[in-house]
Amino acid sequence: MNIIWYLLVAIAVLVAAFSGTMQTTTDAALDSAKVAVELSIGLIGIMAFWLGLMKIAEKAGLIQSLARLLRPIMTRLFPEVPAEHPAMGSMISNIAANMLGLGNSATALGLKAMKDLQEINTEKKSASNAMATFLAINTSSVTIIPATVIAMRASAGSTHAAEIIGPTIVATLVSTIVAIAATRFFQRFVPAQGKDPVDVPIKPDSENGEDN
């Protein structure tokens, strides 16, 4: 991340110097900083809303039943995560929200899942294998209904606005499969720098949610 961040900025300044776009680059930097804060603040309400709802779902045992239902798939995708851990439930809810195209709500649930995954992460400053897999699935976009795209096509005068659903699902499926394969493949080359995951005390209870 350090190198990429540096390269993005350094190349931008270099190119700006040669093509006379220094002023627009400056504006973009300051504008983006502002937008970043607006985005984060905008997310607070939605975060609060979904975290509240998720807490109820957790206490009512709904998340756990959902997790149990998808257990065969989830334990295979995330072998490091104990089957009963709340992270399973929150990852499923995030993926489901993404499938429905719920945008910011999916983000809120995804951040909850990351927090749950961090609980069982042995090396807190470093992404665990489970996190990498979860993020790769997440960014490969598991959309079923690309609602925004369909709406934009319709307003652009498309005669078959929804015809891209099929191709989108196929492309999504390919990228998700590649995402899972890629994390499996790459994780061999980047050791977690930690102890063996086996000797970590695992908190299996999912009854009362998180404890901080």
Binding site: M1, L117, A127, M131, A132, L135, V178, A179, A192, Q193
Partner: peptide, 27 residues
Amino acid sequence: LAVYLGSIGVRRSRHTLAACLTADAAG
């Protein structure tokens, strides 16, 4: 990646970015 990893204070993303970009390219 920035938001999800940032929210829990993870600094080292390890293979996450490589895997995600591979998946993007495939998509």
